[in-house]
């Protein structure tokens, strides 16, 4: 992979992991988790698995939406 893209993806992964662990509000944790997920996709594309990347990008938000069902109940 191109070095700059690889370093940027690893930086996004580490930033997302640390922010997801440190934040305490569930919405802040979900936003930071989205940053973590953004760092995963260049690795999948670089291996050439375009079908896997397409399927994962379409079904990954469902997990967040299911988690939001609990968050709304928690805050209300």
């Amino acid at each position: 992979m191109i070095d700059v893209v690889m370093i940027a993806s690893v930086a996004l992964l580490i930033i997302g992991m640390v922010a997801t662990i440190v934040n305490r509000d569930p919405f802040d944790k979900l936003i930071s988790l989205s940053v973590l997920i953004a760092g995963v996709f260049p690795f999948i594309i670089d291996r050439g698995y375009l079908d896997v990347a397409t399927a994962t990008a379409l079904i990954a938000p469902l997990s967040t939406i299911f988690t939001l069902m609990v968050c709304r109940r928690e805050r209300a």
Binding site: F27, F41, P61, I65
Partner: peptide, 13 residues
């Protein structure tokens, strides 16, 4: 696909 999924996620949050 990533664009659509990520925008959907942000809008849901």
């Amino acid at each position: 696909a990533y664009f659509v999924g990520s925008t959907l996620e942000s809008n849901a949050i």
